[in-house]
């Protein structure tokens, strides 16, 4: 298994260990999310290598799941009601968009628009979150705010990925990078950042709990 898989697995283990501290917040859904990611990763690895089958369909389902999870996460994380509403509506629209794309196209071919749209939405969500914490009129220690770390991960991961997905129509047309080597190079490195940030964010819940208990 590649190294980034162990990173994802590590993140999942940390989320299980932090479960007592996550229970009362919307972050409690992270263990389930990370479990799905780990299973998808395993399937994505085994299908072509062991069973010699296409794995694109797995990602056609896991990508919408991932971004719908972000929609849910930010609809809970925002404190400005308009932003909450925006995340909910965007979530519904994105779900419908994915459904249409998958119905109209083949499931066995990876659908790039789903990923591009997801990347763009995640960046918008992250920017709105940054705006919200910038405008808060109270003392906020960002370095121990779980959602700040999660957002940093989501923001940079999707920003990096978006560059490639924006180039993708040209790359596909010219039949460059058919094996997706460049994409994997970018994506696999960004995975360390994303799951590293998520892990730090989850660990921050322990610090926050400790601070609350110690007054």
């Amino acid at each position: 298994m590649p190294l980034f898989f162990w990173f994802e697995l590590g993140s999942f283990v940390v989320s299980i260990l932090c479960l007592p501290y996550l229970r009362r917040s919307y972050l409690k859904w992270f263990p389930i999310f990370l479990l799905v990611i780990v299973i998808v990763e395993l399937m994505g690895w085994y299908l072509p290598r062991i069973l010699h089958k296409h794995n694109a369909w797995v990602f056609n389902f896991s990508v919408p799941f991932e971004y719908l999870f972000y929609c849910f996460l930010y609809s809970q994380a925002y404190s400005i009601p308009h932003f909450k509403k925006f995340a909910r509506i965007v979530g519904i629209l994105y779900f419908m968009f994915c459904l249409i794309i998958l119905v109209l196209n083949s499931i066995t071919i990876f659908q790039n628009p789903i990923l591009t749209m997801g990347d763009s939405l995640a960046i918008v969500f992250a920017c709105l979150y940054f705006y919200e914490i910038l405008s808060k009129d109270e003392i906020v220690n960002l370095l121990i705010a779980p959602m700040f770390w999660v957002t940093c991960g989501v923001f940079l991961f999707n920003l990096g990925e978006l560059t490639y997905t924006l180039f993708r129509p040209i790359i596909t047309k010219k039949r460059w990078d058919v094996t997706l080597a460049v994409f994997r190079e970018i994506n696999n490195n960004l995975i360390f950042w994303l799951y590293g940030c998520i892990t730090i964010g989850l660990l921050c819940t322990r610090i926050l709990r400790y601070q609350k208990v110690s007054g």
């Binding site: 690895w45 299908l47 072509p48 296409h54 560059t163 990078d177 058919v178 094996t179 997706l180």
Partner: peptide
């Protein structure tokens, strides 16, 4: 996560200049 995509049996390679452009843009 993901994208350990099935390896396609084509030898089409991305030109180095394009690869570099994508990497620099990223």
């Amino acid at each position: 996560m993901y994208y350990n995509r099935i390896v396609m049996h084509e030898n089409t390679q991305i030109p180095e200049s394009v690869r570099l452009t994508i990497m620099v843009a990223t």
